[in-house]
Write a protein that binds this DNA or RNA. Structure first.
Lengths: 244, 244
DNA sequence: CGGTGACTTGACCTCTGTCAAGAGAAGTGG
DNA sequence: CCACTTCTCTTGACAGAGGTCAAGTCACCG
């Protein structure tokens, strides 16, 4: 739950009272294995899910069987806060790794929103940051080359995972397969694999055994034209100092 | 302003009082010509803009000069409501056509949010619907073929423009160039042009003189695998009846 | 009437997708 | 403990969708 607070607080501090209010709202905690659906598409739900542990993704499958992942959720992220407002979500949330998920009933969220201007703003902000990431993905998929696309995602994940304190130097866990990666980047598995090999040979980054290691942050960032602004994390300072 | 209400209300009715509160918040109305920047990127602003008339787009330009449009804003849409919460936006908003834009100071929005639970929810919802559209674009750009991508966008625009009452049968104004279209779809101008010709020859849709005419809604929707769910418009009923 | 911006079209090329096959690693059941 | 399946990753060969270049046509406008 601390991770949720870390993400939500977003620079700010959360009062103990506010934390309690959120913790008290959780109706249950559930586990999901890799591949299991956490929130099905097009189904009315009356609670929203917070990922406490693991990696999940939002995805959409087309008729031809093509899959597109539209977002990755890290520990501390709301998977589907928007269902609180919109009631259904048109894509489904699936677990990539072993996941632990807390459910917060919409009725509870409603109470929070009615009571606390501050928390409302923070919740709203978290959905807006998500949206900002979506737009960045549109840019990546629409206009970046395969290498830059991969590089960009690795940069983004590094910062997001660092925010929740799960990086170790320039290494971080990313429990997804190359197939997942391909489906997130709008590329084929084969080409993803070859591009990965290229980045590895170039000494920029490696992704093996569900772990990403960045070997040259500056080059990677440069290739990706990565500008962390869109993540709206106040913690974005001093990346390269840590990177060196 | 009525268009804003139509979009915001979203099924619901807005009380006269609520309308007044919004109208009273507008600090000024400004005009922009095609190509002019309405909201610059990475700049702190203290007001949000509502498009009253015209078409605008949110875009990002990469170093190589490649441009990616991440969203189209129609009359009645907030262009940058998220700056109210996040303060800056990492991409810029530019006018595609002659545009009229109302500015609402963040201080006023703040007042609205503090006072009205109902309006807060509606404002929040509007940003979430935007996000839903972004995700759909990710899917389109990532996994749909060129024809399906174009078809999908034309379907989306048809519904969105119909919501604000600017369609006439299956025809609607879309004051953008093929270059804009290409940059929104993550395709090259040339290929967009050829794909457009293909759809025209197939009798699905034409886009000439800034006007889109759908000739065969069912085929178009089918090609696009278009499911209007993601627009979260309660007005989505009975499309094909009008389409026939 | 020259100039500019939008749209077309053809030729050519390359990035990326598809198909296929194989190598490890890991788990399963006899 | 060892076949056997399954999943993931890897590589090569080939094909095709879509990008790039180039040139030409309109329409509009000062």
């Amino acid at each position: 739950m601390d991770l949720l607070f870390k993400r939500l607080a977003w620079g700010d501090r959360l009062a103990q009272e506010e934390r309690n209010q959120i913790v008290g709202s959780v109706s249950r905690v559930q586990s999901f294995g890799p591949g299991e659906t956490i929130v099905p598409a097009d189904t009315r739900v009356d609670f929203s899910s917070v990922l406490l542990k693991g990696l999940s993704a939002r995805q959409k499958v087309l008729k031809g069987g093509n899959r597109q992942i539209t977002a990755f959720h890290l520990a501390g992220d709301f998977c589907d806060l928007h269902t609180y407002v919109l009631k259904t979500l048109p894509d489904s949330v699936v677990a990539m790794s072993e996941c632990e998920v807390a459910a917060i009933p919409h009725a509870q969220l409603d109470k929070i929103v009615r009571d606390s201007y501050h928390l409302t703003r923070l919740l709203w902000a978290s959905t807006l940051i998500d949206a900002s990431i979506f737009r960045q993905w549109v840019v990546s998929i629409g206009r970046r080359s395969a290498d830059a696309r991969l590089a960009h995602l690795f940069c983004e994940l590094f910062l997001r995972i660092r925010m929740i304190g799960l990086t170790k130097d320039l290494t971080y866990p990313f429990p997804a397969t190359q197939t997942d990666l391909a489906d997130a980047l709008g590329m084929s598995l084969v080409h993803t694999n070859k591009t990965l090999a290229k980045l590895r040979r170039a000494g920029l980054v490696t992704f093996v055994q569900r772990t990403v290691t960045i070997h040259d942050w500056d080059k990677l960032q440069n290739l990706a034209e990565f500008n962390p602004e869109y993540l709206h994390s106040e913690v974005k300072s001093a990346i390269s100092s840590q990177a060196v």
